[in-house]
């Protein structure tokens, strides 16, 4: 029964945290057009939770002390304002522009909304950038 509850808790623990929302100009002349959404994500790591899990796997006081030291050293390089957990690649959001254009080749995009959010799980998280918008019809009448 306890295992069931533990699995249930882990399976359902997937809270979404919104860090930032931004909206762009909206051109409703002639209708908004077709709605599209693109999303990029990268795996983030919660250092504090990772070190807690690592510490629980060993009974050696010395090893636990070492884990704390490693956590503290890494934390010193993670100072400053940030949203969500740390990620190991900072270029994951760069492909957003090409992804948007692939969704709307006419390039007539309006009503863009950008949401930066984290999908939190134990120890790791999904660091997400989500863009929604509307693609207006091109000259040929196609919104693709």
């Amino acid at each position: 029964m306890k295992i069931f509850f533990a699995i249930f808790l882990v399976a359902t623990y997937g809270c979404v945290v919104k860090h930032h929302a931004q909206f762009g100009e909206i051109d409703g002349r002639g209708g908004l057009g077709r709605r599209f959404e693109v999303k990029v994500s990268e795996t983030g790591v919660n250092l504090s939770e990772a070190s807690s899990v690592a510490k629980s796997l060993t009974r050696s006081k010395a090893a636990q002390k070492d884990i704390e030291t490693v956590r503290d050293i890494i934390s010193m390089f993670q100072m400053g304002p940030k949203t969500g957990n740390i990620v190991f690649h900072d270029d994951y959001a760069e492909k957003l522009l090409s992804m948007i254009l692939s969704q709307c080749s006419s390039g007539k995009i309006t009503g863009l909304s950008l949401i930066r959010e984290s999908n939190k799980y134990p120890v790791i998280s999904g660091e997400i950038v989500k863009v929604r918008g509307y693609c207006k019809l091109g000259k040929g009448g196609s919104s693709v």
Binding site: F23, G24, E25, I26, G28, L32
Partner: peptide, 19 residues
């Protein structure tokens, strides 16, 4: 948000969007 703003400004263009 976007459809609602579009309804309030039907067939117009919304600029100077403050979020």
């Amino acid at each position: 948000v976007v459809p609602e703003l579009n309804r309030r400004c039907s067939n117009g263009k919304i600029q100077g969007v403050l979020t």
